[in-house]
Design a protein around this nucleic acid. Structure first.
Length: 262
DNA sequence: ATGTCCCTTCACAAGGGA
């Protein structure tokens, strides 16, 4: 089976590209982030034509996550137990079971700057996510994926020296990711299709993509039954090219696991 | 370290967020 994650930076703005990409890539399950779309405005029908069931969790203006699956989609849960808010809970996590795997699509708070209250929120949110995931990992195969807004190592940013003092690279953020992995999840590192750095995000500004000045902040965390079955994982940088891309590229993962659609 | 994009509104320009 093939699954993918993609921060689309507005599902409305990205819909034509998303539909083309779904047809070309044919993933069985897709975790989306930054849909920026209220649930009643979500393009469920357009995506459904391609054979996908859709579960969306949106605020409208900001955030927003969704799951697409053409191999069943059960036990959908929006948010997670104990999820903190800013101050109210936001649309940053959605879970569902497909092909026997518990998928969670996350859009982790950005943090803005280490001094900003949003940064403390980010750390609290990641700690609560860890607690929620610990129970999931014990229960069965898990994939936790999305935009984590954290670069796990200095090798995951184009200019580590330039990021000193910025969010996405601080020790507490990286520790929070390590704590999530310690529940029994492994970082499935996607390979780059070009060059040796598998970045997943490049700022729109200043020609960053063309200079490959990016960051690896979209991650795939999988528990052993899934991680052991990974045959291929790549960052689809082709989707970052051309007119009207998201600032993030999708990650595509192929696993040798049976599809048992429900 | 800001050359873009996307969203929204006391809306057709400007501000917020990333």
């Amino acid at each position: 089976m093939r699954f993918a994650t993609w921060n689309v930076n507005s599902i409305k703005a990205r819909l034509p590209r998303l539909l083309d990409w779904l047809a070309d890539t044919a993933p069985d399950v897709v975790c989306l982030q930054e849909t920026k779309c209220a649930d009643d405005a979500f393009p469920t029908d357009e995506i459904g034509v391609l054979g996908y069931r859709v579960a969306a969790h949106g605020d409208g203006r900001w955030n927003g996550v969704a799951l697409l699956s053409r191999v069943g989609l059960d036990d959908v849960r929006r948010g997670f137990p104990g999820e903190p808010g800013f101050p109210e809970p936001e649309a940053r996590a959605i879970s569902g079971t497909a092909a026997g795997i518990r998928f969670t699509s996350v859009y982790v708070p950005n943090g803005r700057t280490p001094e900003d209250p949003h940064y403390a929120y980010k750390l609290t949110w990641l700690a609560a996510l860890r607690d929620a995931l610990a129970a999931e990992v014990a229960a069965g195969p898990v994939v936790l994926t999305g935009d984590f807004n954290v670069a796990p190592t200095d090798a995951d940013v184009w200019d580590p020296a330039g990021f000193v003092g910025a969010t996405h690279v601080t020790a507490p953020e990286r520790d929070a990711l390590a704590a999530i992995r310690a529940t029994g999840l492994r970082d499935v590192e996607a390979r780059a299709l070009k060059g040796d750095r598998a970045y997943t995000y490049w700022d729109y500004r200043a020609g960053m993509f063309h200079q490959n000045k990016g960051m690896r902040i979209d991650l795939v965390y999988a528990s052993d039954p899934v991680a052991d079955a990974v045959r291929n994982a790549y960052v689809d940088r082709e989707a970052r090219k051309g007119k009207g891309p998201s600032d993030h590229a999708p990650i595509v993962v192929d696993v040798d696991l049976p599809l048992h659609p429900s």
